[in-house]
C-alpha cells in the first residue's frame, strides 16, 4: 500500500492560480522533497492532502483511505509554515492539550525529545528562537507515533546547525520502513542529503517526479559557449538557459552526453541548478 496516492487533483483559485491536474504516488518508507518557487503550489498541495482546503476534483488517499476520513489523521504528524499553538502557551501546555487530541500521544516520548533538544518546559512559545520553535513543532508532530510526517517549510529560516539537527530527526524517523516524510522546502541542499525522491512543482503542475539518486547520478549540465549552442541537438536536452558568458543545457543522461559532446563540459547538477534551469530555462 502506498502512503499517499493522488489522482486527477485540481484546485482552482479564481482565474489566477490552478493546482493540477496532477497525479502523485508516494510509497512508504521514503522522504519526498517537494521543491518549487514561492507560489508554485507546494503549500496548496500539502493543504489539499491534509484536507485543510477542499479540492475541486480528483481523489487523495492516505494509507489507502480517503483523506476526508478525519479520524485517519491519527497517523499523520504535521508541521505547517507559521501555523501552530497560540504563542503564549508553553511546551508543557502543549503536552497537556495534545494528550487530549491523539489516542496514541506519548508523553514520555515528548519529554524525552524536549530534553534531547534542550527545549524549555515553561517558556512561552513567543520567547523561543525560531529554531527552537520549529524543533518544538516537529517534536509535537512526532510524539503521537505517526507514520506519515507532512512538513511545510520546516527548515526554512534556520541556521545550518539547527537544520542539521532537524534533518537528523527525519533520518531517524525514516528508519522504520513504514514511515514516510513529505517535506516541502526551497532550501534544496537539505533535500540532497535526505530525500529519496524529488517532486518539482512549477505553476501548479508537477514538472519532475524522480528518484534523487537518478537525478544526482544521471542528470547533468552541459555548458558551452553561446556560439556552439546550435550544435547541441534538441533531443539531447530537457531545457537550456543562456547566461552572460555561456549556455547551460539540462541533460537527463550525463554519460551519454559526455560521449556525444566530448569537447563540452558536462557537470553533475545540483537541485538548485536544476530548479533554476527548469523555471528560467527554455524548453
Amino acid at each position: 500500500m502506498n502512503a499517499i496516492e493522488i489522482k486527477g487533483l485540481v484546485k482552482k483559485y479564481d482565474d489566477k492560480f490552478q493546482l493540477g491536474k496532477l497525479d502523485l504516488t508516494i510509497p512508504k518508507g521514503v522522504i519526498v522533497g517537494l521543491i518549487g518557487e514561492n507560489g508554485a503550489g507546494k503549500t496548496t498541495l500539502l493543504k489539499a492532502i491534509l484536507n485543510i482546503i477542499h479540492i475541486d476534483s480528483g481523489t487523495i488517499k492516505i494509507n489507502g483511505e480517503d483523506n476526508k476520513k478525519e479520524e485517519k489523521k491519527e497517523n499523520i504528524g504535521v508541521v505547517l509554515d507559521n501555523m501552530f499553538f497560540p504563542e503564549i502557551l508553553t511546551a508543557k501546555d502543549i503536552e497537556l492539550a495534545m494528550r487530549g487530541m491523539f489516542k496514541k500521544w506519548d508523553t514520555q516520548v515528548y519529554y524525552n525529545y524536549l530534553k534531547e533538544f534542550e527545549l524549555p518546559l515553561d517558556k512561552p512559545i513567543k520567547a523561543l528562537s525560531k529554531g527552537m520553535r520549529k524543533k518544538l513543532e516537529i517534536i509535537t508532530a512526532l510524539s503521537h507515533h505517526p507514520d506519515i510526517l507532512i512538513l511545510d517549510e520546516a527548515t526554512s529560516g534556520l541556521d545550518p546547525v539547527v537544520r542539521n539537527e532537524i534533518l537528523d530527526i527525519f533520518l531517524n524517523f525514516i528508519q522504520d520502513e513504514n514511515h514516510t516524510i513529505i517535506l516541502s522546502t526551497h532550501i534544496t541542499s537539505d533535500l540532497e542529503h535526505v530525500a529519496d525522491k524529488i517532486v518539482f512543482i512549477d505553476q501548479g503542475k508537477i514538472v519532475l517526479d524522480q528518484d534523487r539518486d537518478e537525478l544526482i547520478d544521471h542528470y547533468g549540465i552541459l555548458k558551452c559557449d553561446p556560439s556552439q549552442m546550435e550544435q547541441v541537438k534538441k533531443e539531447d536536452y530537457l531545457c537550456y538557459k543562456k547566461n552572460k558568458y555561456d549556455v547551460e543545457f539540462l541533460v537527463a543522461d550525463r554519460d551519454k552526453t559526455r560521449k556525444k559532446y566530448p569537447n563540452s563540459v558536462v557537470d553533475k547538477v545540483t537541485l538548485e541548478e536544476l530548479m533554476l534551469l527548469m523555471i528560467k530555462g527554455v524548453k
Binding site: 485543510i52 489523521k73 505547517l80 501555523m83 487530541m101 507532512i150
Partner: peptide, 8 residues
C-alpha cells in the same frame, strides 16, 4: 489551520 489537521 493546524487544528483541522488533528483527528476530527
Amino acid at each position: 489551520s493546524y487544528a483541522v489537521t488533528l483527528p476530527n
